[in-house]
Write a protein that binds this DNA or RNA. Structure first.
Lengths: 341, 341
DNA sequence: AGTGGTCGCTAAACTGATTTAGCAGAGCAT
DNA sequence: ATGCTCTGCTAAATCAGTTTAGCGACCACT
């Protein structure tokens, strides 16, 4: 790769100047007393030779690599990872940086390995990303330099970027209240583990809190709350079926994520009920299926691209120590209507 | 990042030997005549100091960075990108390499920039990935070193890795024939653009070819073929509705991808038909929704993780020039049954 | 005694950049 | 003529490794 690239020495020689002069000119150093003509010659030579600096050599001296490590627990399993990475990639490019991506798969050995691999390559900083919003403790090895937590917080008070799940909970509840839903709102997706253990999830309790707070202020209580062991379609399906077996039918359903809502749709379809005429549904995440469902599903979007971007900005430009909350926009879609009757 | 790391000189000094000796011992060089005791001392010193080599310095001399560039057109839009990356990441780790990931967004300027950025960092090779299987021409700049095309082929005969879509077409058709479906098989997702322009898609024509070939051999013709401008749920929905409006109802549907099948499910549900009792459905891709649908959708899986892995293997271990075809496994699920009656 | 070979190790060159320290010449005042 | 500053530029050190060339001690053989 990149055999016979022109070096700085080649440029200097062609320009009839020293490496020093060439280096200074190409780096646009202020206060050097090199003549305008010298500048010309260096630029011309660099252009003619197609000179590009060898960043390995440069970084040996400057201890800057213009490279950021993106270390995450699991890249592939959730479709959101791509957006996180894309946002980071964009912001990095704008700042002339590049991303070294590694995955730990939640395995301590792999993590150790991944971190050594990136530190050996002298990265300028580390973005430590979790695929589910949660609290975690970062490995001591990366604390030697700048670190930003992405989609996670840590007890050490490191800079971090997380979605505003509580705000999303408020948006969701508010949307239903505004439509006139009152005492027949049911919730699908309560989960003790996710709610109580911040190392499993921060989203569950924040969303729940936002919903409760808004409903409380309106003096509205939830009609029913269904617990689910996981947030997958089958659990949403089961929960919805159990809700429909009860005497009072809900006018609206809040699902803790879109996959649950997808399952709920299936149960509603089987029961011959239509969304939103019979029941409104609203949810969290804005998974691509939300837009594909019939009717399209109203939800609050995880702003993953924004978050990836913010993480890079925080890392390179510095920033506040308290977690950066990125708002989750409400996507109003067809699954919402005023309560029937 | 990584301030005050021990250097090779530190290790050598502590071991009471020269840098040369330390370097040779740590690199496990054969044929050096250093004593067993010298080996001991170097290893001990390295261990005690927590020595890790500075790869920037090493690569300056060796012109190897143990880093691979993963350049793709679009990382985020398809959920499959993650699997491609994950497979590549795994294979790279096994070979002590790391991935530098960039995205071109299909924009020539970004592409130019991305390629310069990775070449400046002296990567050992480039994986050039497309998110939809297609033919493309690679930028001349990366031809100076090893290149592997991932999910793409090129006219230049570069090594490449693509899914075996034709084989998948055969699997799909065979699965239906084996169940007894004959002359009432309909196809959803014909698309002239995708079929005729290899720079748009290679999958469409290969899948179609595999299906046709298998049906022809069994002397079976397609009942109907629906054209779709895109392969999205809404198009599958519309196509399915039009099929149901015709006099003869199909016994089985082949959808060119899972999103079309998802739309077809919606139309079938609305029409009060059940899968697979009334109509079998089979498809391509193995999108996560395929397993979430009720009934779960039989489909042929895009082996993205395998492909990412193969690309790294081809790049580092070398390999044949003809495209590596990665098989697409058939996922037999609940949407298949013998024809009714 | 001289020659040659092996053993165990090291000095120094080299990679391609940045950066520090300083040199030669011009202009000017004394 | 001397000392001073300013201008325009360069030599050499430096970063942290790898690699080439070779040195001194010891032994064996003729």
């Amino acid at each position: 790769m990149g055999r016979n690239r022109a070096t700085l020495a080649d440029v200097a020689q062609r320009a009839g100047l020293s490496k020093t002069a060439a280096s200074m000119v190409l780096n646009g150093r202020e206060g050097t007393r090199l003549s305008a003509e010298a500048h010309q010659r260096v630029f011309a030579a660099a252009e003619e030779l197609g000179y590009r600096p060898n960043l390995a050599a440069r970084s040996l001296r400057t201890r800057k690599t213009a490279t950021i490590a993106f270390v995450s627990d699991i890249v592939a399993t959730t479709r959101f990872a791509g957006d996180l990475i894309r946002g980071a990639l964009d912001a990095a490019r704008e700042r002339d940086h590049v991303l070294l991506i590694t995955e730990t798969q939640g395995d301590a050995t792999f993590e150790q390995y991944a971190i050594e691999a990136v530190l050996d390559r002298q990265v300028d900083g580390v973005i430590y990303a979790a695929m589910a919003t949660r609290r975690l403790t970062v490995p001591a090895a990366i604390l030697g330099g700048p670190v930003v937590l992405l989609n996670a917080t840590s007890p050490d008070g490191l800079p971090s970027v997380v979605p505003d799940d509580e705000g999303a909970g408020r948006s969701v509840a508010t949307a239903l209240l505004e439509l006139g839903h009152r005492d027949a709102i049911a919730l699908i997706g309560r989960n003790r583990l996710k709610e109580d253990d911040p190392e499993v999830s921060l989203a569950a309790s924040a969303r729940l809190h936002g919903i409760r707070q808004t409903l409380d202020e309106a003096k509205v209580g939830l009609l029913a709350e269904c617990f689910c062991t996981e947030w997958l379609p089958e659990h949403g399906y089961a929960a919805m079926r159990s809700l429909l077996g009860k005497p009072k039918r809900p006018s609206a359903i809040i699902c803790m994520n879109d996959r649950l809502a997808f399952g709920a749709y299936q149960a509603l379809g089987e029961a011959g009920l239509t969304v939103p005429e019979d029941i409104s549904v609203i949810s969290f995440d804005d998974d691509p299926i939300a837009a594909w469902l019939r009717p399209s599903l109203a939800t609050t979007a995880l702003p993953h691209e924004q978050m990836g971007r913010r993480a890079v900005e925080l890392l390179l430009d510095g920033g506040a120590a308290e977690p950066a909350l990125v708002p989750m926009p409400l996507r109003r879609r067809r699954s919402l209507a005023p309560p029937a009757g």
